[in-house]
């Protein structure tokens, strides 16, 4: 009864103010245009993340404390963070170095332009070719019966699995990650390489600098913030990778995303709030790397005016 009369009263009130609406509507209208987007972002980006962060500062009975976060330091969880960080660091370093070499060869190395176009197109595809199919491709290549494994064994007499290599180990995974990290590096660093003006090189040469001196004192210092920024993005990219590693190892390789995945599936940590703490740790690492990237990019853009 009360509810109905309340609703009725509100509707009446709305109608009564109807005549004065256009004025106030014009003020509010502009904000209304982005309201659906902001609502969506609030409901499906901000709120779920705040919920997880709040959970990380609570114990399972709902009281606020730091015990959940502190229990991230127990060996199993700290170990998976350490593993994730090492794997991301190694794959991002390999990706950054080889990607930089390839991009330099393509842009400054005097290769024909069709080759440059082909590599750029391929990089666009390969950087998006992550996930489950990539895992399958590498099983067919470097798995126990993969083509490359067999050729190395039968033609070159090199049995890599007997020598201790496994596709499903740390270095095997790093090689797989490289398949999307390197092309991503090529795509991201290309604008910076194109921004190196030939005049700088000419000026250095006319003052008698060698190629080495040009790179040591001009080229590399200008490129450094860009390279470091791209490295950080590659790091974040590797840190969040789940599908590839899951398809490769069946979820038995305990990097942080896998542990969180298993925890969501079936509370394997026997404490629902530990999942929140894991997620909070991931968010924190992502925020730190992305903020640093942002700062470095602003520094790199100084030279691109």
């Amino acid at each position: 009864m009360v509810d109905i009369s309340d609703g009725h009263g509100l509707a009446k009130e709305g109608r009564r103010f109807g005549s004065g609406f256009p004025m106030s509507l014009r003020l509010d209208w502009n904000w209304l245009g982005v309201a659906p987007y902001l609502t969506f972002a609030f409901l499906f980006l901000i709120l779920p993340i705040l919920y997880l962060i709040q959970g990380a500062f609570q114990t399972p009975d709902g009281s606020y404390s730091l015990t959940t976060l502190i229990s991230l330091s127990q060996p199993q969880l700290a170990g998976s963070y350490w593993l994730s960080i090492r794997l991301s660091f190694v794959s991002a370093s390999l990706g950054a170095v080889f990607g930089l070499f390839l991009a330099c060869a393509l842009i400054l190395g005097g290769l024909p332009s069709w080759m440059r176009r082909a590599f750029m197109t391929y990089s666009g595809v390969a950087s998006n070719f992550a996930g489950v199919p990539l895992a399958f491709a590498f099983i067919a290549t470097l798995g126990r019966l993969g083509l490359a494994t067999l050729i190395l064994r039968d033609v070159f007499g090199l049995n890599i699995y007997a020598a201790g290599f496994s596709l499903f180990s740390f270095w095997g995974l790093a090689i797989v990650y490289l398949y999307f990290q390197m092309p991503l590096m090529v795509l991201m660093i290309t604008p910076a390489l194109e921004g190196l003006r030939p005049q700088w090189k000419e000026a250095a040469e006319s003052l008698g600098a060698s190629t080495w001196q040009y790179w040591r004192h001009i080229g590399l210092p200008i490129l450094a913030p860009s390279v470091l920024g791209c490295f950080l993005l590659l790091f974040a990219n590797a840190f969040g990778t789940l599908a590839t590693i899951y398809a490769l190892t069946g979820g038995n390789y305990e990097v942080v995303p896998i542990v969180l995945f298993q925890q969501i599936r079936g509370n394997v940590l026997y404490n629902p709030n530990l999942g929140y703490a894991l997620a909070f740790g991931m968010i924190l690492i992502m925020i730190v790397t992305n903020s640093l990237y942002f700062l470095l990019r602003r520094r790199a853009e100084r030279w691109q005016k």
Partner: peptide, 28 residues
Amino acid sequence: MNRPPILSWLIAFLAAAYFLVPLYATFD
């Protein structure tokens, strides 16, 4: 270009091999 393009070709060749071998192996 005063840098020998041989180095560039070598890098491009190795990268192409790394990109294409898994594709070929999978297809095979």
